[in-house]
Every structure is written in C-alpha cells, then in structure tokens.
C-alpha cells in the first residue's frame, strides 16, 4: 500500500543553509490542558523533553510522548525556528518584549514580527514557535531583517 510522505517544515518554506535560522523538527509538540504547578512563563525539564507554561493549567510539551491530561497533538501545526545569529538584534527589531522575559528557564508568549509566538532561549539560542501557516511569512521577515547586518 502506498503511504503518504511527510513534508517537513524546512521543505515547506524552502530553508537553505544561508538562512539566519534553523528549522528543526521536534519529535513531538503537544498542547496540554491539565492542572500543573509550573510557574508562569517558565520552562520545566522532563524525562523526554521540556514543558513551556502557556496559561494557568496549560502548557506546550516539547516531548517525544504526550503527557497526561487533555492533549492535542500539534507536532504538525507548530513551526519551530531556531535563530543562529543576531538574536538580540532580531528580537529588538521584531518585538517589544522586555529583555528580562527571556532569562534562564523563562519563556514568553508575545507578538514577534506582528504575530503571536512563543519565545525562549535554549542552549543559548533563541527559539521561536509560530503557527505553521505563518511559517512562510516569518521566514520572509527573518530573511529580510537579516539583510540589515
């Protein structure tokens, strides 16, 4: 039987090596609504990934397997951009987020380049989650902003 092939985010937006960002494909992204004691706007490490607080009783699980609770699989629906260089400048160009919001272990939902995103730093790199239909637009924005340097 023929099986459908998966189009990756990188293929969808035509990612190239010269881009100022990467498009990794996390093994799993899940919206989880369940009681939790994650502090607002912070990240928590778990066995197979990490959790990002989104709202009281809601988080985004970047994990291989979905946690317990009311879970929606958004692995195909959330695009992840990881900025390679000029992150501080791009952040200043794209959002009014206070610098303190992205400290160690912190995450923030905010407007970036005019669209709602989830931002955090991990391994020193700026991570941007955006709805996948907006990925081509964000790619255009990042590519254009990068020409300023």
């Amino acid at each position: 039987m023929v099986e459908l092939v998966l189009t990756s985010l990188a293929d969808q937006i035509g990612w190239t090596d010269s881009d100022v960002f990467e498009c990794p494909a996390p093994t799993g992204l899940f919206l989880v609504s369940a009681p939790n004691d994650i502090a607002p706007n912070s990240m928590v490490e778990v066995d197979d990934g990490y959790l990002c607080w989104l709202a009281p009783g809601r988080c985004l699980a970047v994990t291989a397997t979905p946690p317990a609770g009311f879970v929606s699989d958004v692995t195909q629906g959330s695009a992840l951009f990881v900025v390679r260089v000029h992150a501080a400048e791009l952040l200043a160009m794209g959002s009014a987020l206070p610098a303190s919001a992205l400290g160690e272990g912190r995450c923030a939902q905010t407007l970036f380049a005019g669209v709602k995103t989830l931002l955090y730093r991990r391994a020193g790199l700026l991570h941007i989650h955006v709805d996948r239909p907006l990925a081509p637009y964000l790619r255009d924005w990042l590519r254009q902003a990068a020409t300023s340097f």
Binding site: T7, A113, P133, Y137
Partner: peptide, 18 residues
C-alpha cells in the same frame, strides 16, 4: 517599518500551498 510590500500583513499559507 517592515510592514510594506511582502510583509505588509502577516499572511497564512495552506499546507498544500505549493
């Protein structure tokens, strides 16, 4: 700022856009 031409307004593309 960047809000003109291609980036005038955030646009959403369908998965099968191509």
């Amino acid at each position: 700022g960047s809000r003109h031409g291609l980036l005038y307004s955030p646009r959403r593309e369908l998965p099968a856009h191509g």
